[in-house]
Computed example of a mutant assay.
Amino acid sequence: MSYVKPSDFAVKMVDAGESKAFMSTRDTLIRAFMAGAILALAAAFAVTVTVRTGEPLLGALLFPVGFILLYLMGFDLLTGVFTLVPLALLDKRRGVTVRSMLRNWGLVFLGNFLGAILVAVMMAVILTYGFSVAPDDVGQQLGEIGHSRTVGYAEHGAAGMLTLFIRGVLCNWMVSTGVVAALMSTSLPGKVIGMWMPIMLFFYMGFEHSIVNMFLFPSGLMLGGDFSIADYLVWNEIPTVIGNLVGGLTFVGLTLYLTHVRTAPDRRPPAHDATTEVDVAAPVRATT
């Protein structure tokens, strides 16, 4: 059977977290860079499809292509390591420390950011013919996304910040479910279908993904979006990163670990020992 039961794929999650904690700096950066770049291309594709067709659901249906490809190639997103690496620490895997976990997170963040920024620059060049003309309708939409999802939150003050944070939580609840879904099957079709569903959901619902935003907002700034770098950092990227951490670790990593790796004893009563059981209904015989 291609399906992997939860008690088995939960252990694979811990194994994956341990492996990432010990990965070399070079490999961690390469894999994170490529993940950020591929996800950025997928976001650019989805926005283009949405603008050209006027149908956001079609863009959401197609966006998971990038996510699936990057995970099948063994690349890493910050949202994924937020969920997996702490499990190796919690499981007390030898050599895994808070320092090694934070090192992994920092390197993956850097690699994702560099990959996403590279694609943002490339797309800005394409959409403006090397900044020689005004951006086309796709470029204008990228600028509007940056404005509405920074200044738009700021206009609501604390309520906007809370909304942003919760969208970040919900996003990585779904994205990390997609990461885990790749471990639920040993077949390629099974992995693809498992990853596709939660990623489509998060994108269509407009949840906030820190790596996707590393592409959307810098490209929006380059294409004339009416917001600043400070707006992007304070009113999107930083709260989104925190929300992604809370969502993935709390609702995916810890829940699966606690119930499928550290499963509590069930409430089944202990079996009786047939050799010591006394038949109280049997008659008592007198001895002579």
Rank of each mutant, 00 (worst) to 15 (best):
L29W: 06
K92Y: 15
D76L: 07
G247D: 12
S100R: 14
V119A: 09
V4D: 00
L78H: 04
A43D: 06
G111L: 14
V51F: 10
L254C: 10
L201F: 10
G54L: 12
G54W: 06
G139F: 00
G243R: 03
Y153F: 12
V261K: 06
E155P: 00
G248L: 01
V49G: 01
F217D: 08
N172K: 09
A32I: 07
F131S: 03
P135E: 14
H260D: 13
K5V: 10
T240R: 00
P86D: 15
F22L: 04
A10L: 02
M222H: 01
V284M: 09
A42C: 05
E155D: 03
L256G: 04
K20W: 12
N112L: 10
M23Y: 08
E237G: 01
F202V: 05
L41T: 06
A264M: 12
Q141P: 04
K12H: 05
V179R: 02
L89K: 11
V133T: 11
T128D: 07
V121S: 06
G248V: 11
I30H: 10
E144G: 01
G146A: 07
M205K: 05
L29D: 08
G178P: 02
F202Y: 09
I166Q: 05
H156R: 03
G146Y: 00
P239Q: 14
G54C: 05
L77I: 09
G253E: 15
G225C: 05
D137N: 15
L249V: 12
P239G: 13
A16L: 07
G220P: 00
A42W: 08
A159Q: 04
F227Y: 08
F131I: 00
G178Y: 10
P239E: 15
G194A: 13
G95N: 09
V192E: 08
Q141W: 08
L162M: 07
D279H: 01
R26S: 11
T79I: 09
F45P: 01
V278T: 05
F109Y: 14
I193C: 09
T163W: 09
M23E: 15
Q141D: 08
Y204C: 08
G146D: 01
V65I: 13
G220A: 07
L110K: 02
G190P: 11
I242A: 15
P135H: 01
S176Y: 10
